[in-house]
Design a protein around this nucleic acid. Structure first.
Lengths: 103, 103
DNA sequence: CATAATACTTCGTGATACGATGTATTATGT
DNA sequence: ACATAATACATCGTATCACGAAGTATTATG
């Protein structure tokens, strides 16, 4: 899909992917694949950004002798998801303007 | 609204604003205001981009002794709007994923 | 007669998606 | 046994882009 349209959706997609259960990079990419494609470099940029914003916390744990970084959503992250749902009303009104022939 | 979400919508909003009738900078901003706020510097960047992409044509005309640049949508621009509508199905599916609690 | 509105333009900055590339380990196929 | 793919994370450089700030000029308005 269009790279620009993607921009506003990436962060919330990643938050949604870790909302129900802690997850890690590779799995997040696979879980999101049916909805939105993102490369590893993009994902790690997103995760770092969300971490800096306090929307998730990281914990390193061993799995089959290999280290994994597990990401967990915070209250701030959950609030971000709620804000996004509210913002969506605006988006819908914009879409209708565009789809129904503009002015 | 969120700057990132905006990115994928700006171009199509501007195209929609000139779809029905040729328009010019200042008016486009006013017409879009109820839906999406954009500054002059942003709009002219968008218009230049759309022109380079062949999605609109420009014509300078005098109006009350003042020069105005009128923008008209092209077939390429109209096709862009159609593509956008098709892309929207993906966006909706992403939204549902995010809104309904992710994985 | 100043202030606001109209109308367009340029510049610099910060944000950011992504390809390319690198490092390591574990599975899988032949 | 050995190569290839999959898993897992990380960094760097680049191109795109929205926007604030500032500028130029004309026409309404209070």
């Amino acid at each position: 899909m269009d790279a620009q349209l993607k921009r506003g959706l990436l962060d919330v997609c990643v938050l949604a992917a870790i909302k129900g259960e802690d997850s890690y990079g590779y799995r997040i990419i696979k879980d999101l694949k049916p909805y939105i494609a993102l490369s590893e470099s993009t994902l790690y940029t997103v995760l770092k950004r969300l971490e800096n914003a306090g929307m998730l916390t990281v914990r390193t744990a061993e799995h089959d002798g290999r280290l994994r970084k597990y990401y967990r959503i915070t209250d701030v992250g959950l609030r971000r998801l709620e804000d996004f749902k509210n913002e969506w009303k605006e988006v819908i009104s914009i879409y209708q303007y565009v789809a129904e022939g503009g002015a």
